[in-house]
């Protein structure tokens, strides 16, 4: 692959996983954003957006509870999107390529968090010496420099040599395996939704999940319509509970 594109990919992955700015990485590291940028780079904006959105949907519900990352949407996107655009892979094949990297990315994050234990022990010494600058460096500068090497290098290398290898492997891959990966792409969104259910799914509120589910399954409403109806239902419940409290007191 083009050297410049690989450098860009390495940098985009670094940016997307740097976590500088709370929640900013959710945008800068999203396969959607990667799809937009790489689509522009390759002059295939529509394809880029569609592949990016399809990969994004796999990870739409993923949240990092207690800092633990279940899957890395950024690595999945930054490897699969440029290679798919370069070699004209179908969206299903791009998903098949993205999924394994989504798993690998978790290990890169674990390296980062293990190495961060060192900086906090350093920062304690700076706190003792009232060195605000030192704390700043331990909180942001050093972890970020280290992260650059952890993230940039693997992505740079994989995207640089990956396209040829991937074309070779994908050509040799039997249709059955490709079907298998596209099934994985269809099931994996369930992972994120299940995690959110674990967090907010109180038993007495579960009927609302089923209302939303079957509103789409039977009535075929789209996402925006669901958001509108969902907000109205939530508002009704909120106002009722406030009124009830007023009557009680």
């Amino acid at each position: 692959m083009n050297l410049l594109v690989s450098i860009l990919c390495g940098f985009l992955y670094f940016l997307g996983t740097s976590r500088i700015g709370y929640g900013l990485s959710t945008a800068t590291g999203s396969p959607l954003f990667y799809g937009l940028i790489l689509g522009l780079v390759y002059g295939k904006l529509t394809e880029g957006l569609i592949i990016g959105a399809t990969i994004q949907l796999i990870y739409i519900g993923i949240i990092n509870t207690g800092g633990n990352m279940p899957a890395d949407q950024s690595l999945a996107g930054i490897i699969a999107i440029p290679i798919a655009l370069q070699t004209d892979l179908s969206t299903e094949l791009a998903v098949g390529l993205a999924v394994p990297f989504g798993v690998l990315g978790v290990f890169l994050d674990q390296i980062r968090r293990i190495s961060n234990s060192y900086w906090i022990s350093q920062a304690e010494k700076h706190a003792e010496n009232l060195n605000q600058r030192g704390i700043f460096n331990c909180a942001i500068t050093y972890p970020t420099i280290l992260l650059f090497f952890i993230t940039f290098i693997p992505v740079f290398i994989i995207t640089l040599v990956g396209a040829d290898t991937v074309t070779f492997i994908m050509d040799a891959m039997p249709q059955g395996i490709i079907d298998g990966f596209s099934v994985a792409g269809g099931i994996l969104p369930a992972l994120g939704f299940a995690i959110i259910l674990l967090i907010i799914g109180k038993r007495e509120l579960m009927p609302y999940f089923f209302i939303g589910f079957f509103a789409v399954a039977y009535l075929g409403i789209n996402t925006m319509a669901a958001a509108v109806f969902g907000t109205c239902v939530a508002a009704i419940v909120l106002f009722n509970s406030i009124n009830q409290k007023k009557e009680l007191s």
Binding site: F193, I211, V233
Partner: peptide, 10 residues
Amino acid sequence: LFMMGALSST
């Protein structure tokens, strides 16, 4: 939850 249901189905 409502949205999770809708998104799961979609």
